[in-house]
Write a protein that binds this DNA or RNA. Structure first.
Lengths: 239, 239
DNA sequence: TAACATTTTTACCGGCTGGTCAAATATTCA
DNA sequence: TGAATATTTGACCAGCCGGTAAAAATGTTA
């Protein structure tokens, strides 16, 4: 058995926190035996090992800049052995992105129409900020992919992501219509939250340079959370 | 004469608009004959041609993902000919980044302590947004470089950028002290403006997917500007 | 135009690239 | 246990990679 897409990625989610609501993009059923032949124990661990290594390399150097040799060595594996589990470099990349997209969008999926706008938005911001702090490689993986034109997840963005944003923008719009929120374009509000929160992962080095923070110092995240909630929920300028 | 850093990059600035105040990082004096030998007409045009091609390639694929062959062919030049003007791939990348950093930070340099906070901030946002719209490749070039850890401009971030942000954060702080602005961390305000404005260049494909905008349609920038000024200058939530 | 300097081209290099193949090894299970 | 299957390895390949050397072509200027 070779080259059937791996399904297990338990250890990438390090702290689900508010518990991702449900799966939507792509089937991630790991143990629930579907049509494909059952996975070997070795298969499961090795595919996870490869995807972990690939995340490390792809998130730093992007698709073109990454090499199979470096992924293989990061996975502590020979290159042909790696290619026994995945058919190509592209296969690894697409598998990784597809698997992680769900995790990545979980906070937005959590946005509830029947909740209090203030609470819902601040929860969303906090959740996204926490993902930047705890899953910076995942953030950079997506940033790299989108930067080069989303050549491997273009259709996913145009269909699944588009639909999700439309759905959640409608919720925000309903809050505006109810007079609970100042009139604004809901989709750009979502963009602004993405931008500001993911910035702390994607531009980590720049932020640390400006703030003179050591690599392991994450104390600026508290300031970030305070500013962003102030920004999105209150007014910045008093006068 | 070979491999002395090129100095001319006139055509990369397409629309300076509020006129960049002064140069700071790196000397960009093109015609003002300094110690180096005078540049040939051919040198000037070819170095500009190479940097333009390099911007195209580096901004899409990052440093590791880009190749000299692709840069050379984009510059309509043979690879050895390209290497007659620059000593290495790294040389091209660093030259490009250094030259562009000044342009990139010009809007922040423009922030004036004696101006009205509302006007100064909204001008800054508008200026940054316009750069995302008109110079998206430059934005992506920096995003790629920072994503992979700023290996080529690390010192510039830690010294020049740090100092600039400190200086401008002090201005914002003075507005807060004067009661003109709600108390907040000024440096994170700057981060938030960077994040939200640059997002429209760096994540262009994603935004177009969500909004279903054609490649040449830039109508969403008006909505973006409206939301961002609302966000940074007014209050989002009324209740 | 002739001497000189600058620019471009051709041919090339060793190492890395994504990927293949077949043989060797380990694992599973009747 | 042993046969069947799953996994790992080493040897290899064509093409690309960043970069070099030297000659050929072009431009400049006295």
């Amino acid at each position: 058995m070779r080259h059937n897409r791996p399904e297990a990625m338990s250890d990438i989610v390090k702290d689900p926190l508010p518990a991702t609501p449900d799966t939507a993009f792509g089937d991630t059923g790991a143990e629930t035996g579907n049509a494909h032949k059952q996975k070997t124990r070795i298969q499961i661990t090795n595919e996870a090992k490869i995807l972990e290594a690939a995340l490390e390399v792809f998130s730093k150097d992007g698709f073109r800049g990454a090499t199979l040799d470096r992924i293989a060595s990061a996975a502590d594996m020979s290159k042909p052995n790696l290619l026994y589990y995945f058919s190509s470099k592209e296969d690894i990349h697409i598998t990784l992105l597809t698997k992680l997209l769900d995790l990545w969008l979980a906070p937005l999926r959590n946005l509830r129409a029947d909740g209090d706008p203030r609470e819902e938005l601040s929860l969303y911001i906090r959740h996204k900020l926490q993902m930047s702090r705890q899953l910076p490689r995942e953030s950079r993986l997506f940033a790299n992919e989108v930067l080069r034109g989303a050549q491997h997840i273009g259709p996913l963005l145009k269909e699944d992501l588009h639909d999700l944003v439309d759905e959640k923008a409608a919720i925000i719009q309903s809050w505006i219509d109810a007079g609970k929120l100042a009139p604004c374009d809901p989709r750009h509000v979502i963009f602004a939250i993405w931008a500001t929160t993911q910035h702390y992962a994607d531009f980590d080095v720049q932020i640390r340079s400006v703030l003179r923070r050591d690599d392991d110092d994450q104390s600026h995240y508290a300031d970030a959370e305070q500013l962003l909630t102030t920004l999105f929920l209150g007014q910045l300028i008093k006068d």
